[in-house]
Amino acid sequence: MSNDTLDVILAILKYLDESMDEERIDFSKVNAEALGVNEPRYNRILSMMIDEGYVTGLTAVPIAGQTYVSYKAIDPRPTMYGIQTLNENTMTAKAVRIAKGIKEFIPGF
């Protein structure tokens, strides 16, 4: 999985987690354009997220002539596994930033 793919997954999970209190989640805020990826890649990432159990509430919408399935957000939300994955990756990213900061602060580290 490329970093771009992981970044998109984490951005979607973060947005869904932060939107849990909203009456209606505006999934257009994490669409392909907003995340800076093309439609095929975006929809394939959504497919992976569903297959891996990171999100629910997305419905497959096959489009004639398209080699990938598009998705419509019905009631998108992260799963507990998705939240756990988000938290683990957020903590790892923080640890890496702290380690880099220590390395820059302490010569020879």
Rank of each mutant, 00 (worst) to 15 (best):
D75I: 03
Y71N: 08
R41L: 10
T59H: 11
V69G: 05
L46H: 05
Y42K: 03
M48K: 14
P78W: 09
A64T: 15
Q84C: 06
T79N: 05
T56Y: 06
Y68A: 02
I74H: 08
S70P: 00
Q66A: 13
T59C: 04
N43V: 00
L46M: 09
N87Q: 13
M91F: 08
M80S: 13
K94C: 01
T67N: 13
G82Y: 05
G53H: 09
Q66W: 09
Y54L: 11
A64M: 05
A93S: 10
S47H: 14
A64Q: 12
G65N: 13
E52M: 11
G53P: 06
V55T: 10
S70K: 12
T79A: 04
D51M: 08
L58P: 01
I83S: 06
Q66N: 11
T85Q: 10
I50G: 03
Y81S: 12
Y81R: 13
T79H: 05
L58K: 04
M48L: 14
K94G: 01
S70R: 15
P62G: 08
T90W: 03
D51R: 13
I83E: 10
R77L: 01
A64P: 04
P78A: 15
G57P: 06
I74D: 15
N43C: 02
Y54I: 00
R77K: 13
A95E: 08
R77F: 02
P40C: 05
Y54G: 05
T56H: 07
E52S: 10
K94S: 10
T79G: 04
M48Y: 15
Y71S: 07
V55I: 15
